[in-house]
Each structure stands twice: as structure tokens, then as C-alpha cells.
Design a binder for these strands. Sequence first.
DNA 1: CCGGTTCTGGTCCGAACGTTCCACAAACCG
DNA 2: CGGTTTGTGGAACGTTCGGACCAGAACCGG
Lengths: 198, 198
Amino acid sequence: MGRPRGFDEEQVVRAARDVFWEKGFDGTSTADLCAATGLNRSSLYNTFRSKEHLFLRSLAAYITVSTNSMVETLDDDRREGLDRIRALLSEIADDAARTREQGPGSGCFVVNTTTSTAAHDPAVARMLDADRDRRLAALRTAVLAGRADGSVHPDRDPEATAWYIVSVISGIRVAGQSGAGRTVLESIARTAIEALRA
Amino acid sequence: MGRPRGFDEEQVVRAARDVFWEKGFDGTSTADLCAATGLNRSSLYNTFRSKEHLFLRSLAAYITVSTNSMVETLDDDRREGLDRIRALLSEIADDAARTREQGPGSGCFVVNTTTSTAAHDPAVARMLDADRDRRLAALRTAVLAGRADGSVHPDRDPEATAWYIVSVISGIRVAGQSGAGRTVLESIARTAIEALRA
DNA sequence: CCGGTTCTGGTCCGAACGTTCCACAAACCG
DNA sequence: CGGTTTGTGGAACGTTCGGACCAGAACCGG
């Protein structure tokens, strides 16, 4: 009952995500959000309680698609464990390269947030922690699968190796923002895999 | 001639660096800078033209000590090439762990800036680019030394490998901010080295 | 077609922002 | 010791910030 919304909430969140992604939480004003979403301040505050709440929604939206895609790649049991990880790093490098190629890139929203907002916003930190755990879990099982099928070196501890790959992914993402081109990013991914080889 | 300054400029820059490091450019107000440096707004603006200029000075100060230390480790020709890189990653992991242990860490100022301010401030981007080139050069020579003395696998291209290590370093730094503890960070560093082994 | 409920556009708010300005304090030079 | 130069404290600038508010528009069930 009452007047219906003149916008699609998910669509608004996506638009907001792009702004936060590009400018960061501190660098984004409510005016920026109005401009990007097409919504008036009132509608924004009526729908999402505050700038921070909208940021959390935006971050969650990003995390969902990004980590879902990652888990999908890592759970593909038609491939050997190492091959899945190789495919994952290849996707990451490609994604970083593409993000970079179109305009002065904004890198990865999760990494950007980890290195800025997370330190001062507990709610953001908690969301990132949960996502990190999910990524670590998916990586751990892929490493275990790799050790079982003989593609991953038996000395590689699943937990430590999962962290290594998480770290490599962040590294590739930052390298993309540091000016590394596609071929460089792909070579980083290839080199990183060498550490896991059986 | 004229009244002398009541403060040490380098010391002020260091204080400013710590604030920018912790809160980022956007998150730092001129009031924060006054509080941290003990200087009045007037003295701040009289000495450094603007907030951005002070930020550049702060970043330069950080880069100098950080990259000098890195180059020193990498140029130690009493060790084999791979050993130098191992020592470097060990220092980075230790540094990340220490930064993390004292308060909710602020990670690495260079990484934080790369993932936020660099995209929108050309002067900052130029400074980071120059520093990255210096780090890449030092790494390249260490890799070359390692190939010559047989400690680094001959298939490892110096340029690509230098980028790989730069990327691993960023990754370790981000991992530190993602909640990885000392032992995890050290294990990441050890795993990363495995990719280079002869 | 009307009462109720929700959404929307615009305005307004106090606070904080980066920066400028000015009156005065403090030192050096002659 | 007077004049010049430079640094300092603090107030003030206009702007922008995140957020609150309200009058009216748009739709609902009856």
C-alpha cells in the first residue's frame, strides 16, 4: 500500500557501488550518490538509512558476484586442483587488466576497502572478514583436491597455501593499479603457480 | 633574517605522514594535521602550500626510508640472489606483522595510497610510479644475480620476476590488513620464494 | 472517489571542510 | 635600538558535508 518506488533498489545499489568503488567511502559525497543513482537525497536516505549503510550494501553486492565467481571456478571438479587455481588466477589477471584498460582503473573494491575504510569501520571489517573466510575455505578445498590428485606439491599446507593465493590475488590487483599491463599481470599469475607445482 | 621557525620541518613531516598513513588523504582533515604536528594552521600553510603538498612530502618521506631499506637488502652482494630476496620478503612479513600487532594496523602507506588517492591525483601517481621503477630495478638485478649464482631458476625472466615480487609484497601487506597473523605472513613469504627456486 | 500510506523534490540545518587573512610576536641586521 | 622580515595565533572566508524535514504527489484498499 502507499506510493510505489520509482526505481529498482538493486539497480541503485549497483550504481552506488560503482561510485564507492571508484572514489572510496571518504571520497564519495551524498551528492555524488544522487547524481549516479538518479535518486533524490530523500529517497536515498529513506531507503538506506545512511551513507554507511548504502556503502555496506554496495560492498555486499560487489562481494557476492566476485566471490561467487571465484568459488565457482574453484569448485569445478572436472579439473585437477592446480588447474582450478591456475584458471582462477588467470581470471583475476584478466579482470585486473580489463579494469585497468578502461579508464584510470579503480582496481578491486574489496582490496581498496581493506586498505582504507576497513581499519576504521568495524561493520565493514566484519563483512570483509566473512568474505575472506569464504574465499579461504574454497581455496583450501582446491588445494586439498590438488594434493589428492597429485597436481599440487604435497609439502604445501592447505591453510598456508590458501592464504598465499589470497595474498597473490591482492598483489595482482594492486599491481594492476600500479601500472602493470596485461602481459605483466598474466606473467605474475603464471609465476605464482610455480610455487604450488608438484 | 626574520623570526626563526619554532619547529623542525622533517619532524613535522613525519608526524603528518603518520596521520595520512592511518587515515588516508580524504580521511585526514587539516585539524587532524594541526593536532598531530602541534602546529597552527597558519604555520602549516605557510610552510607547505596546501594539504596536497604536505601529503606529497609525507609520502616522499615514507618512500625514502622504505625503499632505501629494500634496496639495501637487495644489493647485499655477500649473499646469493635468492637469499637476498628471501631476506627481503622476511623483512616485509615481519614489518607487516609488527604494524598489525600495534593497534588496528594501517598497513603500508604506499599500498594504501596506490589503492585510493593515486587514481585521482596525478602528482601522487607520478611519485608512486617513480618509486615502483626503483623497486623493480633493484629486484631485477637481484634476480639476475640469483640466476648467475644458480640460486634462482634459469627460466625466471628478470623483469617478470621483479613484478612478481613487487606483487607478492603488496599481497603480504594487504594480507596483514586482512587479519593474517605473523606466522601466516611468514608462510606466505616462504611459499612465494618456492616459485623462484632453481 | 476518498482516507491512508508511502514516496519524492526541495529546502534547510549545523557542523566541518580547506584555505585565506590579519594583527601581533619574535628574531636578525645595521 | 629601530626597521625589516618572517613566523604564529586565531578568527573568518565561502563551500560542502551528511542528514533532517516537510509539503505535496502518487498509488493503495475500500
